[in-house]
Amino acid sequence: MSTTPSPTPAPASPAALPLPLPERGRGPARLGPVGLVLAAGVSVQFGAALAVLIMPRAGAAGVVTLRLAAAAVVLLLVCRPKVRGYSRADWGTVVAFGVAMAGMNGFIYQAIDRIPMGPAVTLEVLGPLALSVIVSRRLVNLLWAGLALAGVVLLSGHGGGFGSLDLVGAAFAVGAGAMWAAYIVFSARTGRRFPQADGLALAMVVAAVLSLPLGVMEAGPALLVPSTLALGVGVAVLSSVLPYTLELLALRRLPAPTFAILMSLEPAIAATAGFVILHQAMSTTDALAIALVIAASMGAVRSQAGRREKR
């Protein structure tokens, strides 16, 4: 679920094209960073699948709290961000980034607690896709928006499988997409105001603090059970720490549009993780619906990248 506006790492999306493009490599030279991005996507989605297994113990809000709190601790230890010398506007930006992060994680975990991972992440991707269409202001992007809408109609318009989506779960997934779009905007702004990954670490603390009351209310003492705590740390490493690191390394050698296109594969990876870990079946119609949304996302990225190259 995850672009990395330099220098603050963050999940990718079609809207994350303002990134400075690294030097383009050729042939095999790209296999390394491409592999890193794909590994990051697998890590995020299989971490989310692991989180679903913990939800009976701690609930969706409890798992979000464990993930964000553990990730905040790890990032604070690694980054050791400075807290002095920043303006009120700087802190406002990082707080907004943290709020978006908390909302994005909170909503998507509520969604995957109610509906299969494939459609949940597919609906979530609509947020960054909508942002990309709005920012580009190109007529061709209406085509991509229509293609994505067709995928959503397929996703919810037939009986059985993904067609029987829980409406509350679907609403949470769409909400997660809206927060993902906000996340992208404030991630980029935070990256311009804070060095290295300092802004990400501080925003993660904000997100963890915001999620803590909800997690305590839902899970209570279950959050401190050693086995649940250990699994929560595993989710944090798989879903936050490891993918952010891999994406940061990849962006040093991979053009940002290519990075965003690869991250558009998230719904397919999520559906695979749901099938392998959670035994969530997927019909041919379901696969077609997800493929349409992925194609729309990739098309929007390529259109925006082509426009920038012409400037």
Rank of each mutant, 00 (worst) to 15 (best):
V133L: 04
T93W: 08
A48F: 09
A111Q: 07
A60L: 03
T245P: 00
L262W: 05
Y244N: 07
S43E: 15
R193V: 11
M179G: 06
L224M: 10
A178N: 10
S136G: 08
V42T: 15
L167S: 14
T4H: 07
M263F: 14
G35K: 06
L77D: 06
A176T: 13
T4D: 13
F172S: 05
R57C: 02
V185M: 11
Q280V: 04
A120T: 07
P213N: 07
L229Y: 05
A120M: 08
Q196P: 00
A173M: 02
E23R: 12
A260S: 15
V42E: 13
R84M: 04
S164C: 00
I261M: 15
G160Q: 11
P33C: 12
L165F: 11
S297A: 14
L129V: 03
V121N: 01
A260G: 08
A250I: 09
R307Q: 15
A89M: 06
L248N: 10
A130R: 01
G32W: 12
A130K: 00
S2K: 03
V276G: 05
T272D: 04
L76A: 06
R138M: 13
Y244K: 00
D113L: 05
G103D: 04
Q110P: 01
V121S: 03
T285D: 15
Q280P: 00
N141C: 11
G274F: 04
A256P: 04
E124G: 00
A300I: 00
L139Q: 05
A39C: 08
A40T: 10
P119K: 12
V237I: 11
T258A: 09
L246Y: 08
P18K: 10
I115S: 03
W180S: 04
P22S: 14
S283M: 12
G157N: 09
V34R: 04
W144D: 10
A173P: 02
A222I: 01
S43Y: 09
T285P: 01
R307P: 01
A120K: 02
V216C: 13
T285A: 15
L238A: 15
G127S: 13
R88D: 10
R84N: 08
V206E: 03
M204E: 10
W144E: 06
V293E: 08
T190L: 07
